[in-house]
């Protein structure tokens, strides 16, 4: 079967639409991101506008998702909180990416660095994510920036491990040997020949890390070690609704649904991307 047909590559949009889970996942996460982005236009109330008269109101035409113990609109707060949750997730993913990819490439290329890096990565992955994040936040002092940094550090080893394993394989391939024979400098081999071939696994892993980081941020905030409880994130909202479970369930249900939806959709995107970029299914992208 040497004769592989050389069809023009189908357009990326067609490829995505052919995969239902990927399309649904993308649609949901994009909708959530859009809501967050356009929060000032969409939210009917300011997220911190107190209205003691309207405290603990159930969902209605005026308050779609009800109100909390200070009479703040849950709908508006959920949308605004999305901004923060998505930002934390995205920033932590980028941070984890920078650290993880660098460590992975260095470990995969230089045997001496590898022994040290591989040990550290293994040790970090032996800790439960949240525990490690709590320890890091505690050490650095709680703030938005620390949460991002802490989550970045927590998830970097996942990427480092994948990048390292693939680098070890790719650096032995003849095309890398050809580059060495040409005298191409090592850093260029690392970026042009190795990293470029790792784009798909990194992208897939990054979507998962995005989801984990959002979940972790919510957990940290819920536990009270994340961002300040004054700032609405889905985690802090659930944390404050906790006292009113049974009395005002909407306080926890709606931010909870938001977390579930965004995490689930990101996982769908990750799974879909993995299938889409799988070299056994598609040779090139």
């Amino acid at each position: 079967m040497a004769a592989v047909s050389i069809a023009p590559a189908p357009r990326i949009t067609t490829l995505i639409l052919q995969r239902k889970t990927l399309a649904i996942g993308l649609a949901v996460i994009l909708a959530i991101a859009l809501f967050a982005l356009l929060a000032p236009l969409i939210a009917p109330y300011a997220p911190n506008k107190l209205s003691i008269v309207n405290r603990l109101k159930p969902p209605s035409g005026t308050y779609f998702f009800g109100t909390d113990e200070f009479g703040r609109d849950i709908f508006s707060r959920t949308i605004y909180a999305g901004r923060l949750s998505l930002t934390v997730g995205a920033a932590a993913t980028v941070f984890a990416g920078v650290i993880g990819i660098t460590l992975g490439l260095v470990a995969g290329f230089f045997r001496r660095a590898d022994t040290v890096i591989a040990r550290i990565v293994d040790a970090m992955m032996a800790f439960p994510d949240i525990l490690l994040a709590i320890a890091l936040v505690a050490a650095l002092g709680p703030s938005l920036a620390t949460v991002i940094v802490a989550l970045g550090i927590v998830y970097a080893p996942r990427l480092a491990r994948i990048v390292r394993a693939s680098t070890l394989v790719i650096r032995e391939l003849p095309y890398v040997e050809a580059a060495r024979a040409l005298g191409v400098p090592t850093w260029r081999i690392m970026t042009r020949h190795v990293l470029r071939n790792l784009v798909s696994p990194i992208l897939v892993q990054a979507t998962f890390i995005f989801a984990y980081a959002m979940l972790a941020e919510a957990s940290l905030s819920f536990l009270g070690v994340g961002v300040s409880p004054e700032i609405p994130t889905w985690g802090t909202m659930i944390a404050s609704g906790r006292q009113y479970v049974g009395q005002a369930d909407w306080m926890t249900i709606f931010p909870g649904v938001a977390i579930i939806l965004s995490v689930l959709s990101l996982q769908l995107v990750g799974d879909g991307l993995r299938d889409l970029l799988d070299p056994r299914l598609r040779k090139d992208l």
């Binding site: 391939l173 003849p174 020949h193 470029r196 040779k283 090139d284």
Partner: peptide
């Protein structure tokens, strides 16, 4: 090289 497949960077 021997292998015409792995000797060229696919990307």
């Amino acid at each position: 090289f021997q292998d015409p497949y792995s000797s060229l960077n696919p990307r």
